[in-house]
């Protein structure tokens, strides 16, 4: 996506300052794991250099045919994961509202019963032999991604005496600059567990939390097959470099 006027060298601009008030603070004692893992010193801020403005790129040819189909990508031939079939789709955008094409999106989740396929997982919900819980996509030229999966279950976790995670899908997203890297979680519209989740509530801004809740999208539902949820993700925006004539570093 070009941000340059014709005949000007394309220089990737520096990033808008991150609005930390919309993110969780490092230290959030309601989420107990953060207590010993939160830096206590302030971050050292500086305008991003080439080291932050650049980032890795991944080719479309890296993606396997089933990478974005969690219903079958771990299943035995002819079988499928158990659960409510859903399509999750959306657009990766930046704060300038420009689509971010050709970037890697990775996602992972518990199975329909709320159990992860992981050696540290001990929840008594059953393991689904046909569900791995991992998938990935690279956004198309308009920044879109989509995948098929089963709706994850809610699960209890050791934090408070009786804390539960709402149904959620974890996302890892790359932008075009290393400091656009983002890991977040998607929640499902209408879930009463969202409001009482200690991890959701590490974010103090209620409006910001809404950005993590995917609405039911009946317009993209596949009739007689799967309902759709739409989850757009916004990465940090870059400043324009229209007026920068001097190629940086030369």
């Amino acid at each position: 996506m070009s941000t340059s006027l014709p005949n000007t060298p394309q220089i990737a601009g520096s990033f808008f300052a991150r609005d930390h008030s919309r993110h969780p603070p490092s230290y959030a004692p309601g989420y107990k794991s953060s207590v010993l893992r939160a830096p206590k010193q302030t971050l050292v801020s500086f305008d991003s250099t080439l080291s932050e403005r650049t980032g890795p790129a991944f080719g479309h040819n890296m993606i396997g045919e089933l990478d974005n189909d969690l219903i079958v990508n771990y299943a035995r031939p002819g079988e499928a994961a158990i659960g409510q079939r859903i399509l999750v789709h959306g657009q990766i955008l930046d704060e300038n509202a420009r689509p971010v094409p050709n970037v890697l999106v990775e996602y992972w989740q518990a199975n329909a019963g709320g159990r992860y396929r992981h050696k540290k997982e001990s929840y008594l919900a059953a393991v689904d032999p046909n569900f791995g819980g991992f998938g990935r996509s690279i956004t198309d030229e308009n920044g879109y991604y989509w995948f098929k999966t089963v709706k994850p279950g809610a699960y209890p976790w050791p934090n408070g005496v009786n804390d539960w995670r709402p149904a959620h899908i974890h996302f890892s997203v790359f932008g075009t600059g290393f400091v656009q890297r983002l890991i977040t979680q998607m929640y499902f519209e209408g879930d009463p567990m969202i409001d009482i989740c200690p991890i959701v509530n590490t974010i103090s801004d209620k409006e910001a939390i809404k950005q993590l809740i995917a609405p039911l999208d009946m317009g993209n539902t596949i009739p007689m097959d799967m309902r759709a949820y739409k989850f757009d993700i916004v990465l940090r925006g870059r400043r324009s470099t229209y007026f920068e004539n001097r190629p940086e570093g030369n």
């Binding site: 919309r22 969780p24 704060e95 300038n96 890991i183 590490t202 974010i203 910001a208 940090r236 925006g237």
Partner: peptide, 10 residues
């Protein structure tokens, strides 16, 4: 302008 999607723990 849009707002950056909030982070959540991995």
């Amino acid at each position: 302008y849009l707002k950056e999607t909030p982070s959540q723990t991995a």
